[in-house]
C-alpha cells in the first residue's frame, strides 16, 4: 500500500458515510480518495479515530457544511477553530465549503442557503474566505450550490460570483455538476455559460450525485445514481475545464458500497476517455 498523499489525485473518489466505514477499512477498495463532512468529526472520539484510520489508507477531503460563509454576522470562530484542529489531526488533501449562508445572527438554519450575488455580498464573502484560509493555512475550495430559488437583487450569476471570488481570494472552486443541473432545471441557469464563466485553473474538484423530483422541483437529495443528463454535463466539463478529482456523493437511501464503487468507476472511465469524445 502506498502512503496516502497530501493532495487529491486526479481520480474518482466517494463520499464516505458511516454505514461504509467498516467495509472500506476492511476491503480497502482501490479508490483514489474519499471525502467526509468535516463537522461529523469535530473534537475527539470514535468518529475522529475512524477517520484517522481511513486517512492512513486514502487521501481525505474535508467537506464542510456548517461554516455559513455568506452569513451576515461575523464568522463563528469556535467553528473555525474546530475545523483548524481537525485539519491538524487529519492532514487532509483538500478542504472545502459551500457558497452559502446559515445564520441570521438570531438563529441558525442548518442547511445550505443561497443569497443574492452582488458586489457587496462578494466583498463580504471574500473577507470571510480569506479569514478561513488564513486560519487553516491553506487554500479553501468553494462549492456551487443547488438552489430552489434565486434573488431579484442578484447582479451576477453564481458562476461569475465564484470566478470573482477565486480571483480575489485565491480560493479554489469545487464544481458540483449535479447542482448545476438542478439549477438549470429549477432556475433556468444556462449550464454552458456557467462552465464558461469558471476559470479552469481554479477548478480543483468535481462532485457528482443523484437527485429527486418533488412538485416539479428538482431536489438535491443525493439519493440515486447520477442521471444521464448529469453525466453529459460532466463530460462537457471534462472537455472545457479538464480532468479533476471527481467525487460520487450519496447521502440518503445509501446503497451498498459496490454501487458507489460502480459509479466511481464510470466517472473514472469518463476521465480516461475524455479525448475520445472530443470529436
Amino acid at each position: 500500500m502506498q502512503p496516502a498523499s497530501h493532495f487529491l489525485p486526479v481520480r474518482a473518489g466517494i463520499g464516505l458515510r458511516a454505514q461504509h466505514y467498516e467495509q472500506v477499512l476492511e476491503m480497502l477498495p482501490p479508490l483514489g480518495w474519499v471525502e467526509v463532512h468535516s463537522e461529523n468529526f469535530f473534537e475527539g472520539g470514535a468518529a475522529l479515530h475512524t477517520l484517522i484510520k481511513v486517512r492512513e489508507n486514502y487521501p481525505v477531503s474535508l467537506h464542510g457544511v456548517g461554516m455559513g460563509l455568506a452569513s451576515p454576522g461575523p464568522i463563528d470562530h469556535q467553528h473555525l477553530s474546530a475545523l483548524k484542529r481537525l485539519c491538524d489531526r487529519v492532514q487532509p488533501a483538500a478542504v472545502s465549503e459551500h457558497l452559502c449562508w446559515n445564520s441570521t445572527g438570531e438563529f441558525v438554519v442548518n442547511d445550505l442557503l443561497p443569497f443574492p450575488y452582488t458586489r457587496a455580498s462578494l466583498s463580504h464573502v471574500s473577507v470571510r474566505v480569506e479569514q478561513v484560509q488564513e486560519k487553516i493555512g491553506r487554500r479553501l475550495l468553494i462549492e456551487n450550490l443547488s438552489s430552489y430559488l434565486s434573488f431579484a437583487r442578484s447582479e451576477m450569476s453564481e458562476g461569475e460570483f465564484l470566478a470573482e471570488l477565486a480571483k480575489s481570494t485565491g480560493c479554489g472552486i469545487l464544481f458540483d455538476v449535479n447542482n448545476l443541473y438542478v439549477n438549470s432545471k429549477n432556475l433556468g441557469v444556462d449550464p454552458e455559460s456557467f462552465i464558461r464563466a469558471l476559470p479552469s485553473n481554479a477548478v480543483m474538484e468535481y462532485h457528482l450525485a443523484g437527485h429527486s423530483v418533488r412538485d416539479g422541483c428538482l431536489v438535491d437529495t443525493h439519493s440515486d445514481r447520477v442521471c444521464n443528463e448529469v453525466w453529459d454535463l460532466y463530460r462537457l466539463a471534462l472537455q472545457q475545464v479538464g480532468n479533476r478529482p471527481t467525487l460520487i456523493e450519496w447521502d440518503n437511501d445509501t446503497p451498498d458500497l459496490s454501487v458507489l464503487l460502480e459509479e466511481a468507476g464510470i466517472a473514472q472511465s469518463h476521465m480516461e476517455h475524455r479525448h475520445d469524445s472530443m470529436v
Partner: peptide, 15 residues
C-alpha cells in the same frame, strides 16, 4: 425578494 421561475416560490420555501 426571492424568485422561483419554474414553480411557485411557496414550493421552494417548503423544501
Amino acid at each position: 425578494g426571492g424568485i422561483g421561475p419554474n414553480y411557485p416560490i411557496g414550493t421552494a420555501l417548503e423544501i
